[in-house]
Computed example of a mutant assay.
Amino acid sequence: MSGCSVGIMHLPQGMAYALLASLRPVFGLYSSLYPVLIYFIFGTSRHISIGTFAVISIMVGSVTERLAPDSNFMVNVTNGTGTVNIDERDAYRVQIACSLTVLAGIFQILLGIVRFGFVVTYLSEPLVRGYTTGSACHVCVSQLKYLFGVTPARFTGPLSLIYTLVDICRLLPQTKVPELVVSLVALTVLIVVKEINACYRKKLPLPIPIELIVIIAATITTHFGGLRSEYNIDVVGEIPTFIIISCSRLKPPRAPDATLFSEVVGDAFAVAIVGYAINISLGKTFALKHGYKVDSNQELVALGLSNTVGGFFQCYSVTSSLSRSLVQESTGGKTQVAGVISSVIVLVTVLKIGSLFEDLPKVTFSAFCTISQ
């Protein structure tokens, strides 16, 4: 039951957080599959849920957008304007994300070997809470452009969050009303049902899977209501299964582009440290609550192997998720077998039913990201 509950959460969160990483939603599903299986073998925490996470996704997205901006993939340029070759851009961003992920995983493995886990002693609870709160603000602001259907300029450096918010406010007259309506409806439903889950959590055998319900409802409404053709609502589009050769065999892993290592080495180290800090903080919390110990150095190695192996299968950097871990623990999960069951659900989605979500509006992912913070 715990694995099924977490697997249902993996689907919307994986696809939503992939957008934060400036990747196609399907890569969030891949990142919810392979790393989970690796952590099942090497991890020491019984309750945390490995997979996509908002903070890491934003860090990956900042790198992919910096090294592969839209301006580098313009075609049919006339008078300074043109169209973006989306397929070529997205393919290169995947290469960047995979190289970043593998390098971050290598850093984590090396740090685990040299017993760097002692640093967890200096990660105080106020520090972790402050960082999480700051990241939540970044996630919410980053999703406003999707909620209103506008395209603000990209800002970097100090106060970039404020500049982005000001630019979004400037563009509010250009709001796409259909996308705003869809996002408001999704937000309202998510908030109401999550409050119901919180109020009746002791009476419900498992939380109402509202994320999955919203995905199904939004997909059906968009497909049969013609929202994509009549109102030009941006949808997920094709969910390819190019990592699958057949139902019985997986495509061999592909080595990342090593020439990109020099450009992402600093970002990879930052991702490695932040990912580990989040992972060990949650692991220690659940271990203290349930009376067992987690090995801080082994957690570094386990997370590093999850990222390294995942990078070879077109996954991007992962760490533990607070919301999924809480569900895994509250629904009775006591070992990482729950994680294996959740990964099976993701695998079935990629293999068999992924194509059914092609008409899912992307704006619903923004609602998921906002609510999860």
Rank of each mutant, 00 (worst) to 15 (best):
G82V: 08
I113V: 14
F116R: 00
Q95S: 14
V94H: 03
S62K: 11
N72Y: 08
T101R: 09
V114W: 00
T83C: 10
I86Q: 13
N76G: 15
L103G: 09
A97I: 05
Q95H: 14
N72C: 12
C98I: 12
E65H: 03
V114D: 01
A54W: 06
T83V: 13
V63F: 00
V94Q: 05
G82M: 09
G105H: 10
T64M: 12
G80R: 03
A54L: 08
V75D: 02
F107N: 08
V77Y: 07
G80V: 13
A97M: 03
T78Y: 02
F53N: 13
T83N: 11
T78M: 05
G117R: 08
T101G: 06
V75F: 02
V60F: 10
D90R: 12
G105K: 02
Y92P: 03
V114I: 15
V84D: 01
I113A: 11
V63H: 02
D90Y: 05
T101F: 11
I56R: 00
M74V: 15
S57F: 05
M74T: 12
I86V: 15
D70S: 13
V84Q: 03
A68L: 04
E88I: 05
P69G: 09
S71Q: 11
V94I: 11
A68D: 02
V63Y: 00
L110F: 15
T78P: 00
M59T: 13
